[in-house]
Amino acid sequence: MKNLLYLTVGIVFGLALTKGEAISWFRIQEMFHFQSFHMYGIFMTAVPTGALSLWLLQKFHAKSADGQPIDAPHKPYHHGVIFGGLIFGFGWALTGACPGPLYAQVGAGYLVTLVTFASALAGTWVYARVYAYLPD
């Protein structure tokens, strides 16, 4: 039952990504060339919405539906945020997809992006194979 609710959150998230054209390769190039405010507008409204919600939930000591206190994620620094971040950025410019849109592009009927998706799985798997040898 609960999983259906996570599915529903995903549907709304995927619909907003798609109707907001954040899964469009064209929009991603436009963004990287600073030629439109559109994608920046999405980020600049999504992040404050998330930040304000999280702040309110914590201020009022809200609990989740299953009774857990709501806490903020801790994202410690490691050099991978730069090295991995740059590699991901290159891939984002090539595919026009970050991981959310990887799923949404397939759903939107661009079936060839199943290849992009499978390749992202391969990239994750190879990372799992070699990460011990990488600077972190």
Partner: peptide
């Protein structure tokens, strides 16, 4: 390069960074 190499970099890079745009 666009699909296979690009997709690989998305998967490798996001795991290396331990997170993505979301």
């Amino acid at each position: 390069l666009l699909m296979v190499v690009g997709g690989f970099m998305v998967g490798f890079g996001t795991r290396y960074a331990r997170g993505c745009t979301s």
